[in-house]
Design a protein around this nucleic acid. Structure first.
Length: 954
RNA sequence: GGGUGCUUAGCUCAGCUGGUAGAGCGUCGCCUUUACACGGCGAAUGUCGGGGGUUCGAGUCCCUCAGCACCCA
């Protein structure tokens, strides 16, 4: 690749004529073909790779599920990451956006199991190796989807560095971390209660539990006292667990039961004796104040059991059916069947006192939605508190910064109450735990079986069996910022890019991922994994609902880009539903909302939209109307470029006429040219500030406003007054052409991070005309504000022009004067400055306001009856003769007068207050005084004008 | 029970360290002006959730109430 331009980024040089005439450009921007072609070119030239020069800038992508597809949330976050990446690349940083995908253990395994199920195959029917092979095949088959989607979205990731969490390198990192943590005693194996998913047959971490309040019942059961003196009543939401009870507990303060503590009850059905114990955990106000204690099936009871040395009686099989601990007749029954049978038997025996409705919190698996069981099993845990402490400190000390800052509170809250992390999963798809067992049950942890044998002196003949379990997917994700860069090797990429610059992710995975990366990064790299964490909101539909397949409100980002007809959209939303009965409802809603389907908008419009929506709020409603408005913006930009192409024409812009080059033969810039450059500089300044604080909405707004409301609305129109005037010199015209092309070119660079495709397309022909060389806009320097310095004089002058034009347009608009009708305008009370501005900008005023004539009235002259607008002290008069109805004008002025009077009253009130005048800063008081004076002038003018007009009315 | 957000124009949302309420979409009026009708020009629209306080001055700071959403237990 050629170093296209110096870092200073001046544009100067010979301009080839003729080659770039784009007068034949389509009238309407057609993104589809352009985008694909452009992306292929970027990628094939290797332009996404770090340049090897400049300050390192690195973002690691939150790895999407390898077999999944990108949804709108991805499109949103990828846009922001890509904008940052392109911006920093253009600023000359050595920029890496590291791509990759996640093996997503449970999610992927479930998909493959479902596929096999459709072919009548159970996972258990296959040997482990065969199943895992099936998953790899599915990955190979579907894994390209995400990459294809990312290419359509324009993501400038370095594809040559693509990583997958199950790659050999990353797997090595996983093993290394596991072994080292184990060596330090930070990973241990233990038998304790875990959240068990009886459908997926695996343990889950606390974070994968979704607790929801649900309607249930509270059963009040009678447990007979052993001595026959009566019974106690225990209340439970889970009567079936009574078979595993080891005690009944009361609060030690509870006088009602004081005498019972120490006695025993006869546990019905199970026919066992269990003690009555006292424990402060028991809430005397709940139910009867007596609770049954089931240490093997309830987290609180487990703790109580440990305190009192109670037996842990496991009554469930892994599928949550009753096991051999239960009486014969219950064995094999599912937990919910068992519940009914047990309640029935207790009722028959007169041991069911009563039943009441009760709300309870039910834990469900976030993947299976199955009701989870607290279940006693052997699992591997990470002792997390020692890892959390430095991660808390790092954020406290500002070594990692949350943006918006308030999310650090959420982070702290969780980290300070963190609990050990269960990392083993009873799955087949994932990183197998690097632990081996001998026939005696001894456990050996090591990087490989060979290492284990070596380290523990185990002869080759000793049979060893590797742990069957795999690690939680998030275990490998936690290493992502350094494993992708080559760790545990000491690679140049690690030296350069770690710590990474920023992590862009949603608040939903602060605990799952951000916190764990912080802990692992600090532990193994000795430094935080990223300087900034930019937390995005979550994309919702236009009603604020979460987008989900089951709700049928999902919008595929590529459907917004390419468009989709109604039939295909309905098909997409209604096939493969978990609950097919919802299909008609979804179809109806879809038909209503998108009767025409979704029209194509192009990638840039989608990107601009999500950037504009990225304000620092938690919930971002995706609105297709909004995309349409940015598609219109792209079209506007396209047509502005067409205009410039037509204006420049075949001739090109001759060398020697570069407007911005401080060289001999340079033409003096016209005021309008200086003005647009000054305005552009201010826009760039705003963009720089906005990028610095991750305010992509401000970035979008600043560029949108400049491009549309300054460049298109005013500058292009001002330029026309030169280009289409007989009076302007050839040199002036050339200078204007030059400036048009230069600002257009710079604008493409400024817009490129948000709208990479259209800007590349326009830049390709605009750049040579502006004297820039280089193969692509994406490697050009980002415009710098100092190259477009503020020009207050030009801004004052053009500001005056705008005000005069607006004055005439207001009269015209409010009086419904046909825009094509050229009208005479008189200027009264013109100051020397007004006259100077007028003389320099007469042509522009006449054109932009549609004037037939523009006359300065001599002092003392009496104007004809006219509609009036004030520009400072200058009076802009539109004679009414034949144009304006006097009564309509009276009405218009009456409204204006009323408003002016109201404002004047407010200003007077303020200034009349002694406390305001003496307490407010002098500048504020002075402004208020000026304002009052101006309003007073306006009021008297309007009154006088009204009086004159009323004289004309019958 | 603990915590965090949110409540501003018909809709979706901006409003930084307190100093004359903004944008996009929509609405209304005029216009096929030779870059663009995916357009141009103009207009209307808000007791900034309620109440109280601090202040010369509050959408902005503090307290309180209400409603909505989310997280943790």
């Amino acid at each position: 690749m050629t170093a296209a331009r110096s870092a200073e980024g001046t544009c100067a040089g010979q301009v080839p004529a003729g080659r770039y005439n784009r007068a034949d450009m389509d009238k309407v921007y057609a993104p589809h073909d352009i985008e694909r072609r452009i992306y292929e070119r970027w990628e094939s030239h290797g332009w996404f790779a770090p340049s090897g020069r400049g300050a390192p800038y690195c973002i690691v992508i939150p790895p999407p599920n390898v077999t999944g597809t990108l949804h709108m949330g991805h499109a949103f976050q990828h846009t922001l990451m890509d904008a940052l990446t392109r911006y920093h690349r253009m600023r000359g940083d050595d920029t890496l956006w590291q791509p990759g995908t996640d093996h997503a253990g449970i999610a992927t395994q479930m998909v493959v199991e479902r596929q096999l199920g459709a072919r009548g195959i159970e996972r258990a029917d296959l040997p482990r190796e065969a199943f895992v092979e099936q998953v790899w095949q599915w990955k190979a088959q579907s894994g390209g989807t995400i990459a294809a989607q990312m290419r359509r979205l324009g993501d400038s990731v370095d594809w040559t560095r693509d990583r997958f969490t199950m790659d050999a390198g990353l797997s090595r990192a996983v093993v290394e971390v596991f072994v080292r943590l184990h060596e330090e005693g930070l990973i241990y194996r233990g038998k304790r209660l875990v959240n068990w998913d009886p459908v997926l047959l695996t343990a889950l971490s606390d974070l994968e539990v979704q607790s929801e309040e649900e309607e249930g019942q509270l059963w009040h059961l009678r447990y007979p006292l052993e001595d026959g003196s009566g019974h106690v009543v225990v209340a439970t939401t889970r009567p079936e667990t009574m078979l595993g009870d080891s005690a009944v507990a009361v609060n030690p303060q509870d006088e009602r039961y004081e005498r019972l503590v120490g006695q025993t009850v006869r546990l019905p059905l199970a026919d066992r004796s269990i003690p009555i114990i006292a424990d402060a955990y028991v809430d005397p106000a709940f139910g009867s104040g007596c609770v049954k204690i089931t240490p093997a099936h309830d987290f609180n009871d487990y703790e109580i059991g440990l305190r009192h040395g109670l037996p842990q009686i496991n009554i469930f099989t892994p599928r949550a059916a009753l096991n051999e601990q239960a009486p014969e007749r219950f064995r094999g029954l599912d937990r919910f069947e068992a519940r009914e049978r047990i309640v029935a038997e207790l009722a028959a025996a007169g041991l069911l006192e009563r039943t009441e409705k009760h709300k309870l919190v039910v834990p469900r698996g976030d993947r299976s939605d199955a009701v989870l069981e607290p279940y006693l099993t052997d699992q591997w845990y990470v002792r997390i508190a020692p890892l959390a402490a430095p991660a808390i400190a790092a954020v406290e000390q500002g070594r990692t910064r949350f943006v918006p800052e308030s999310w650090s509170r959420t982070y702290f809250e969780w980290m300070r109450n963190i609990r050990d992390w269960c990392v083993s999963r009873q799955l087949w798809w994932g990183h197998r735990i690097p632990a081996w067992y001998d026939s005696l049950g001894n456990v050996y942890v090591g990087r490989s079986e060979a290492e284990v044998r070596r380290k523990h002196d185990l002869p080759a003949g000793t049979p060893l069996h590797q742990d069957d379990d795999v690690l939680d997917t998030w275990f490998s994700s936690a290493l992502w910022p350094f494993s992708t860069l080559g760790w545990p090797e000491r690679t140049p990429e690690i030296a350069k890019f770690y710590p990474t610059s920023v992590l862009v992710t949603g608040f939903d995975i602060i605990f799952f991922w951000v916190a764990r990366m912080m802990m692992m990064g600090l532990k193994f790299m000795g430094e935080v994994p990223f300087r900034d964490v930019y937390i995005t909101g979550l994309i919702r539909d236009e009603h604020g609902e979460k987008m989900s397949k089951s709700k049928g409100n999902v919008i595929d980002p590529l459907d917004v880009v390419d468009g989709i007809d109604l039939g295909s959209l309905i098909a997409k939303r209604t096939t493969g539903l978990m609950q097919p009965q919802h299909a008609p409802q979804i179809e109806k809603a879809t038909r209503k909302q998108y009767p025409q389907g979704i029209p194509p908008h192009g990638t840039d419009a989608l990107r601009f939209t999500v950037a504009a929506l990225a304000s620092p709020t938690r919930e971002i409603r995706f609105d297709l109307e909004r995309v349409a408005s940015y598609r219109n913006f792209c079209n506007k930009l396209w047509n502005a470029a067409r205009f410039v192409a037509l204006a420049v024409g075949d001739a090109g812009v001759p060398a020697g006429a570069p407007a911005s080059t401080p060289a001999a033969g340079r033409h003096e810039l016209a005021t309008a040219d200086r003005w647009i450059r000054s305005r552009f500089g201010r826009a760039v300044e705003a963009v720089e500030a906005a990028f610095g604080e991750y305010r992509f909405d401000y970035v979008a707004a600043a560029l949108y406003d400049f491009a549309w409301h300054e460049f298109c609305d005013w500058y292009v129109e001002l330029a026309k007054t030169v280009l289409q005037s007989d009076g302007a010199s050839a040199a002036a015209k050339q200078s204007t052409r030059r400036n048009l092309v230069e600002v257009l070119e710079a604008l493409q660079r400024a817009l490129h991070p948000l709208a990479p495709f259209i800007t590349e397309e326009i830049w390709q022909w605009a750049a040579p005309l502006a004297g820039c060389t280089g193969p692509t806009v994406m490697l050009q320097p980002y415009p710098r504000a100092q190259d477009f310095p503020a020009d207050d004089a030009a801004e004052r002058e053009i500001g005056w022009v705008q005000a005069v034009v607006l004055a005439v347009r207001q009269i015209r608009g409010e009086m419904n004067v046909n825009p094509s009708r050229r009208i005479p305008v008189l200027l009264q009370a013109a100051s020397a400055t007004d006259r100077a501005f007028l003389e320099r900008n007469r042509a522009a005023l006449e054109r932009l306001a549609g004037l037939g004539s523009l006359t300065v009235l001599p002092a003392g002259a009496t104007p004809p009856p006219a509609a009036v607008q004030l520009v400072g002290e200058l009076r802009v008069l539109v004679p009414m003769e034949g144009l304006i109805d006097a009564s309509a004008e009276v009405e218009r002025l009456g409204k204006r007068l009323a408003r002016a009077r109201q404002d004047l009253e407010k200003a007077r009130g303020k200034l009349a207050s002694e406390s305001f005048v003496s307490n407010a800063p002098a500048a504020v008081v002075a402004t208020e005084r000026e304002r009052q004076a101006e309003l007073e002038r306006a009021v008297s003018e309007l009154q006088a004008q009204l009086a004159r007009l009323r004289g004309l009315l019958p």
